[in-house]
């Protein structure tokens, strides 16, 4: 990840971003990618669960929920408004 990339769990709410890297343990990384978290895909952090975790993310026209811990393995780059 280069300097302007941040992990998905630190994306500010409603900020559009594009995925630039997916890391992590093999099976889960594969699952993330098959779920649509591939480099180049656009994501927006919609909100977090009222208790802080998991996240509610918009990806490919659908809402997906994943925990912060795993979201940290997805690197994103902010997009302009």
């Amino acid at each position: 990840m280069n300097a302007i990339d941040i992990p998905l769990d630190r994306l500010p709410p409603q900020q559009r971003a594009v995925i630039c890297a997916v890391d992590g343990e093999r099976t889960f990384r594969r699952r993330l990618m098959e779920f649509g978290f591939v480099p180049g895909a656009e994501v927006t952090l919609r909100t977090t669960s009222p208790v802080g975790d998991p996240l509610d993310v918009v990806l490919r026209g659908a809402r997906v929920s994943l925990r912060r811990r795993e979201a940290a393995s997805i690197g994103v780059r902010l997009l302009g408004p």
């Binding site: 889960f28 993330l32 779920f35 998991p54 809402r63 997906v64 929920s65 994943l66 795993e70």
Partner: peptide, 8 residues
């Protein structure tokens, strides 16, 4: 096992 779930 990580959570990966759609909110339909």
């Amino acid at each position: 096992v990580p959570l990966l779930m759609e909110l339909p």
